[in-house]
Design a protein around this nucleic acid. Structure first.
Length: 499
RNA sequence: GGCCGGUUCGUCUAGUGGUUAGGACGCGAGAUUCUCAUUCUUGAAACAGGGGUUCAAUUCCCCUACUGGCUACCA
């Protein structure tokens, strides 16, 4: 039999790591078994559901290259949006009423809580009303123009057993299960329990990966299946993903939104890799997995039962790895994007913006120094913003005597003049070649003058970039070009002289 | 409170009735390097506690503790 999976989020918040993990595991299982996966929007909470959150789900899935076989209005069981299927739920609810598996409840309000924080649940006071009482209530409701909710007639005793694909066998006594949950709300909308069961059945869903927070509702769902005389799908209750505080990730607090992480410069392959390893592992050594690997290797029996705390430091490490692995051209593209955002006109207006080679050289200079794409632009800052001389000189005094530059500037200037190319050179290999030549000459120079090569380079670094830690300064020198380098050195010299 | 789940370095995890309990992130130290990084070497760091079963338990069973989830006309 063909496996049919589904991801059924409620659009009441932006997608976070936890939701994405549920989606990913459904997707991996489907693709591993050559099955199908459906996206179904569970927007039965009309007050909290929003279109923008549906868009967010779609965008995040797309960004991570997760595709659905059926979704929205598209597929044999369309629509896949629960708010457009209310008649279906009402119809099935009526069936349960006819079978005496459900009943109208007129006495819901104010009956559900004691005044302490101990929750007792509904008292089932409408479960066994006499015909007269029902009539009276019906009349009352009609006058007020209200609709009664429909409740499921849960068994009062006996056991319920779930054979889960992950947590294995779990057993409940029906008397411990939430008493007679509501199936149809006053607004005519189904609750999760009804809609979910009806849709999973109607859409022929065979396997369900869902978060473990659903475990305690499983008896309700299982009983619903039996009331309808349907076969339930195989359930896989995934361990929870916790935030760094050890608490459940809540979409309402926007923690670790997938969109947000993408915006911060985490690559899609990073997120997939990191999320897949939340509660799943392949062996004791492998760390890096592409989507193709995951689909091939995915194995339900390797899923852990215990919850996992999501660790941002490890995410950084994964991202760093994938940035190091990226092709030069691809990184260059990201750099252009970043710089456009960050520097606007001063980048776009420069000759560098259109110079693919320049961007690629930058890629090589920054790639080992960043964890996220967002960290790129500060490292390239000095290309687009001329450093402040005064500020540089201040740094000088902190680091070492500014006299160094004063004394050595002529020699350095000579070397730069004679060795840097006349016209701009931005091809990375060429840049390195020029840098190497300057280095050789500079080393000889330093040896003759008995001054430290490191210090000379540091002085150049500070003068040219306004910063004491940057990518290798010699390639930067070449990229900046002879004119800019000479101008800057001269200006600095003048400034020091004038002090 | 009740029900249900979980518990191996700080974090993600591997693993087994007999192991020096393995790896990864992070952290410490050292080496390389023009700074910062990268890279390399290396160090510290864990079986929640108590009872059983057993020649032997981190591994199997029970209890306790801790932790999380659910206990909604939210999903």
């Amino acid at each position: 039999m063909k496996h049919r999976l589904r991801y059924a989020p409620s659009p009441t918040g932006t997608q976070h790591i936890g939701g994405m993990r549920t989606l990913l595991f459904n997707y991996l299982f489907a693709r591993h078994n050559k099955g199908n996966i459906v996206l179904r929007i569970e927007d039965t909470d009309t007050s909290r559901s929003k279109q923008e959150y549906i868009d967010d789900i779609l965008a995040c899935a797309k960004a991570l290259s997760i595709s659905f076989d059926e979704l929205l209005q598209d597929g044999p069981y369309a629509p896949y949006i629960q708010s457009q299927r209310t008649d279906i739920y009402q119809h099935h609810c009526q069936k349960l009423l006819d079978l005496d598996k459900a009943y109208y409840c007129y006495t819901s309000q104010n009956r559900q809580y004691e005044d302490s924080d101990v929750r007792l649940g509904y008292d089932r006071s409408s479960r066994d009303l006499s015909k007269d009482e029902i009539k009276r209530y019906q009349e009352e409701y009609r006058k007020k123009n209200m609709r009664p909710v429909v409740r499921l007639k849960m068994p009062l005793e006996g056991n319920c057993i779930l054979h889960d694909g992950i947590v294995e066998t779990v057993q409940w006594n029906y008397k411990d299960v939430s008493p007679d949950p509501i199936l149809l709300k006053q607004d005519g909308m189904p609750t999760y329990h009804l809609a979910n069961v009806v849709d999973d059945h109607l859409m022929n869903i065979t396997d369900v990966f869902r978060s473990q927070e659903w475990l305690s509702s499983s008896p309700i769902h299982l009983f619903l299946y039996s009331a309808f005389e349907w076969t339930p799908p195989k359930y896989y209750h995934l361990p929870l993903v916790l935030g760094e505080d050890g608490k459940k990730l809540s979409k309402r607090y926007g923690a670790m939104g997938v969109h947000e992480l993408l915006k911060k410069g985490y690559l899609p392959q990073t997120l997939i890799n990191a999320i897949a390893l939340l509660g799943w592992s392949y062996d004791e050594r492998s760390e890096f997995f592409t989507m193709e690997h995951l689909i091939r290797l995915f194995d339900v029996s390797a899923i852990s039962k215990s919850p996992a705390v999501f660790n941002m430091k490890k995410l950084d490490w994964f991202n760093q790895h994938y940035i190091q692995e990226m092709e030069r051209g691809a990184l260059a593209l990201l750099i252009r994007e970043q710089c456009e955002q960050q520097y606007g006109k001063s980048f776009i207006g420069s000759s560098w913006a259109q110079d693919e080679k320049f961007l690629q050289s930058c890629a090589e200079l920054v790639r080992s120094r960043i964890h996220t794409v967002q960290e790129i632009s500060p490292l390239l800052d000095f290309f687009f913003k001329i450093p402040n001389i005064e500020h540089s000189i201040d740094m000088f005094q902190e680091k070492f005597s500014r006299n160094l530059v004063k004394m050595q500037y002529k020699g350095i200037n000579d070397i730069v003049s004679s060795l840097l190319p006349e016209c701009a050179v931005t091809d990375y290999e060429e840049v390195l070649a020029y840098a190497k030549r300057v280095e050789t000459e500079l080393r000889r120079f330093c040896q003759e003058r008995q001054c430290s090569f490191g210090k000379v380079l540091m002085s150049l670094r500070i003068v040219l970039t306004g910063s004491s830690n940057t990518p290798p300064i010699l390639p930067i020198l070449v990229l900046l070009g002879k004119k800019r380098v000479k101008d800057t050195i001269n200006k600095t010299k003048d400034y020091i002289d004038a002090l």
